[in-house]
Amino acid sequence: MLYLILVIVLTAILTFYRVIKGPSLPDRLVAMNCIGVMFLLVLVLLSFYFERKIFIDVALVYGVFLFINVLIMAKYLRKPWKGGVGD
């Protein structure tokens, strides 16, 4: 079980390369969504590793707020920010 969690965290670190070196903002947003879902899987698997079932509630609340967060970013960052450097 713990090797699975280690491999998923290493996968998230690999995916973070796209957040650092994304040419535009939607690339970074897609990579952020992927890392968020991978961390939700890590939370569920840690609940099975420690055998405390209260940790699944943390994963449920985290999933709901991740969805709301991405929707708010997609509403307000729809056009490029005026004061930005603009890579």
Partner: peptide, 16 residues
């Protein structure tokens, strides 16, 4: 450099 890149990375910090 850009401030919107910084605010995208903030929920990852929270998740970790």
């Amino acid at each position: 450099k850009d401030l919107s890149n910084s605010v995208i990375t903030l929920p990852l910090f929270g998740a970790i």
